[in-house]
């Protein structure tokens, strides 16, 4: 499964667990408008670290936390081990 698909699948999973409704997942969607709050995004990042083996936001000092979903996915694609 591609990195992007994994991310979208986990977003859906976390949203379901947290009783949240996701906005349509387009690349230019602001992460904080996605329907997940910061706790949801934190859980998402932890789950993705377990599945993809990387957490691009902790492992690199100069990565700023992404604003849009597209940037978020790109951070994982760039950081893929």
């Amino acid at each position: 499964m591609s990195i992007k698909l994994t991310i979208l699948e986990q977003m859906t999973q976390v949203a379901r667990e947290q009783g949240r409704t996701l906005a349509p997942l387009r690349d230019d969607l602001a992460l904080l408008d996605s329907g997940l709050d910061s706790l949801g995004i934190a859980v998402l990042v932890a789950r993705l670290e377990d599945r993809l083996g990387t957490d691009p936001f902790t492992n690199s000092e100069d990565v700023h936390f992404p604003v849009t979903l597209g940037d978020f996915v790109k951070a994982y694609e760039n950081g893929a081990p």
């Binding site: 910061s38 706790l39 995004i41 990042v45 932890a46 936001f57 902790t58 936390f65």
Partner: peptide, 12 residues
């Protein structure tokens, strides 16, 4: 506790 770049920590 598990560290998180978003919330500082999470519980696992």
């Amino acid at each position: 506790s598990r560290s998180s770049p978003v919330t500082g920590a999470l519980v696992v």
